[in-house]
Design a protein around this nucleic acid. Structure first.
Length: 204
DNA sequence: GTTATGATTTACT
DNA sequence: GTAAATCATAACG
């Protein structure tokens, strides 16, 4: 079952990020269907979170889609190379988002390998936000797309039990000062498709 | 118009 | 372990 808008448009982005663990991310391009189980996420909150692109009404041409009502995609290019895939949550003007950092390949693995240019089925295939997007065929042409159906959507699945979810500081957000310490990264304990990048603890 | 920088990955020492 | 790759975005003149 496709996740309804009401799932995304709740107020607690941290709760949504946890509940997304275990859900299925699905893309379909040119008849090729790829399915991945979400195993790692990070929460970004528009209000009061310096690590978020939309922090403090920072409404620009890039971040404008974050102010849409929850249930759309925010895709942007990082370091000139990597497409990062985010899900917008909460209601209009709240600008919360969940970054998908890792998935476990379920279906369409051959297509993922081809897009990534490697034969492995190990963690290197989809562990890390840039890798997830590349493997699933996600790029900036999907900016602002509705996640209610093809070519990109999410489906419900058994939630990951709370005792298998680990939390910690987010990755790559040292510039955010004290907000870099917020434990808003969530991943499935022991899953091989969780990214191995380590968060930065040194905030000065 | 110019310039600094990043929600990362990879290749090197 | 450290550094380079690489370009859209945002801030400034």
């Amino acid at each position: 079952m496709i996740l309804p808008k009401s799932f995304y448009q709740r107020d607690d982005v941290c709760l949504i990020a946890q509940e997304l663990l275990g859900k299925l991310l699905i893309t379909q391009f040119d008849g090729i269907r790829c399915v991945g189980k979400i195993v790692e996420t990070e929460a970004y909150r528009g209000w009061g979170d310096a690590a978020c692109h939309s922090h403090r009404e920072r409404r620009t041409n890039r971040t404008k889609v974050m102010y849409e009502p929850g249930g759309v995609a925010y895709v942007y290019l990082c370091y000139g190379i990597h497409n990062l895939f985010n899900i917008i949550t909460n209601v209009e003007d709240r600008a919360d988002a969940v970054l998908i950092r890792g998935i476990e390949p379920i279906e369409g693995v051959a297509a993922m390998q081809e897009r990534r240019g490697m034969k492995t089925t190990k963690g290197e295939l989809t562990a890390g936000p840039g890798r997830v997007s590349q493997a699933m065929g996600i790029d900036r042409s999907l900016y602002g797309i509705d996640l209610g159906g093809p070519p990109v959507w999410l489906e419900d699945a058994q939630s990951t039990p709370a005792n298998e979810i680990e939390t910690g500081p987010r990755v790559g957000v040292a510039y955010a000062g004290k907000d870099a310490l917020l434990p808003w990264r969530y991943w499935v304990r022991g899953n091989g498709y969780v990214s191995k990048a380590r968060p930065v603890y040194d905030v000065g």
